[in-house]
Amino acid sequence: TGIVNVSSSLNVRSSASTSSKVIGSLSGNTKVTIVGEEGAFYKIEYKGSHGYVAAEYI
């Protein structure tokens, strides 16, 4: 489990890349469940599926 540490919002992406499609966003202080790690990204549970967020902001 981690907490989103941004002042505005954090993009949730379809894969572990900044060039991948943005599938949603999370606001600051949102609690997320981390299920894996790929490079600089965490794989998280997101809306019944999975998404990827930049690990530096969690």
Results as ranks from 00 to 15, higher is better:
Y42K: 04
T1P: 08
E38V: 10
G51H: 02
G48E: 07
K21E: 13
N5A: 09
L10M: 06
K47M: 13
S25D: 06
Y57D: 08
K47A: 11
R13K: 08
G28D: 08
S17T: 09
Y52Q: 00
S14H: 11
Y42C: 04
K21A: 13
E38H: 08
I58R: 00
V6R: 08
T18M: 14
S20K: 01
A40I: 10
G28T: 11
H50I: 14
I3L: 10
S14R: 09
K43L: 09
T33F: 10
S20R: 04
E45A: 09
F41L: 03
V12R: 04
S14I: 13
G28K: 14
S20Y: 07
I58M: 04
N5C: 14
G2R: 07
V35W: 07
S9R: 13
E38T: 07
I23A: 02
T33H: 09
A55S: 13
A16W: 04
A54C: 15
S19H: 12
V4D: 03
L10N: 02
K21Q: 12
S19I: 09
Y52F: 10
Y46E: 01
H50F: 15
K21F: 09
A54Y: 13
S25F: 13
S27V: 12
K31L: 14
E37G: 07
V6N: 08
S7W: 09
A16D: 02
S7P: 10
S8F: 14
E56Q: 13
G48K: 06
E56R: 12
K43D: 01
T33C: 14
E38M: 08
K43M: 09
G48T: 07
T30S: 13
I3Q: 07
I44R: 00
V12H: 01
K21I: 11
T1D: 08
K31E: 11
S25V: 15
S14G: 10
Y57A: 09
K47Y: 09
I34F: 03
Y42V: 06
Y52N: 00
S14L: 13
R13G: 05
I34C: 04
T18Y: 15
Y52W: 12
L10Q: 04
T18W: 15
Y52C: 00
E56V: 11
G48W: 05
G28R: 12
K43N: 02
N29H: 12
V53K: 01
G48F: 05
I44L: 02
T18A: 14
I3K: 07
S20E: 03
N29D: 08
N11M: 14
T1A: 10
I44N: 01
G2C: 11
V12G: 00
N29Y: 13
K43S: 03
V4W: 04
S49T: 12
G48M: 06
A54F: 14
G36Y: 05
I23D: 01
S49V: 11
I3C: 14
Y42L: 10
S27T: 12
V6Q: 08
S15M: 08
K21G: 08
N11A: 15
V22F: 05
V12Y: 02
K31S: 09
A54G: 08
I3N: 06
S20L: 04
I58V: 10
V35N: 03
H50K: 05
S14Q: 14
S25E: 12
V12A: 00
S25L: 13
S17F: 07
L26E: 01
A55M: 15
Y46R: 00
G36D: 07
V22C: 08
L10F: 04
L26W: 02
S8K: 11
I23G: 01
F41N: 03
L26I: 12
I23W: 02
S17Q: 07
Y46L: 03
I3G: 04
V12D: 02
A55I: 14
E38A: 07
E45Y: 08
E56K: 13
V6H: 10
K21C: 12
R13H: 15
S9D: 09
V32K: 00
G36A: 10
S7Q: 12
K31F: 11
A16C: 06
A16F: 04
E37T: 15
T1I: 15
A40L: 11
S20W: 05
V53M: 02
E56T: 08
I23M: 07
I34H: 00
Y46G: 00
S25K: 14
S9K: 12
S8I: 12
V22E: 04
S9Q: 11
S15F: 07
E38S: 08
G36M: 06
G24W: 04
E56D: 08
G48C: 06
G39C: 05
V6I: 13
V6K: 12
T18P: 14
S7H: 12
Y57T: 05
K31V: 14
V35Y: 07
A40E: 12
A40P: 10
A55K: 15
S7E: 12
S27L: 14
S17H: 09
S27Q: 13
V32A: 01
H50P: 05
R13S: 08
L26N: 00
T33V: 13
G51A: 10
A54V: 13
V12Q: 00
K31Y: 12
E56I: 13
S9L: 11
I23Y: 02
N11L: 15
S14Y: 11
G24M: 05
A40R: 10
A55N: 06
K47D: 10
T30Y: 06
S15C: 13
T30D: 10
G39K: 06
I58D: 01
K21H: 10
S20C: 05
N11W: 14
V22D: 03
I34P: 00
T1S: 11
S14F: 12
F41D: 03
A54L: 15
T30F: 06
V4S: 06
S7L: 12
G48P: 03
S19W: 08
S20N: 03
G51D: 01
I58N: 02
Y57I: 03
G2I: 08
A16T: 06
I44T: 00
A16P: 14
S8Q: 11
N5V: 12
S17L: 07
S9A: 11
G24C: 05
R13F: 15
E45S: 07
Y42T: 03
G28C: 12
G2F: 09
K47L: 12
V22Q: 04
K47Q: 12
I44V: 05
H50Y: 15
E38G: 02
S17G: 07
A55D: 02
G28L: 10
G51E: 02
V12E: 01
N11G: 08
V22M: 05
G36S: 08
S7V: 11
T30I: 07
N5T: 11
L10T: 09
G28V: 11
G36P: 02
K21M: 12
S20F: 07
G2M: 08
G48H: 06
A16L: 04
T18R: 10
S7D: 10
F41M: 05
K31G: 06
N5R: 11
L26V: 10
S17C: 10
Y52T: 00
I34K: 00
H50M: 09
T33R: 09
V32W: 02
G39M: 05
G24D: 02
K21R: 11
V35M: 09
G2W: 11
A40V: 09
V12P: 00
V35R: 04
S14A: 15
S8E: 12
V12T: 02
Y46N: 01
G24K: 02
I58P: 02
T1W: 15
G24H: 01
S27E: 13
G39V: 03
K43H: 04
K21L: 11
E38D: 09
V32S: 00
S8V: 12
L10K: 02
V53E: 01
S49C: 09
E37R: 15
K47E: 12
R13T: 13
G28W: 12
A55Y: 06
K21D: 12
L26C: 04
V4H: 03
G39R: 05
S49N: 09
E56G: 07
A40F: 08
A55V: 11
E56Y: 08
Y52K: 00
V32L: 05
I34Q: 01
L26A: 03
Y46F: 13
K47R: 10
E38N: 06
A16Q: 03
V35K: 05
T30M: 10
K43W: 04
Y52A: 00
Y42Q: 01
L10C: 15
A16S: 07
G36F: 04
T18L: 14
S49Y: 09
V6D: 06
G24Q: 03
E38R: 05
N5I: 13
S17A: 07
A55F: 07
A40T: 09
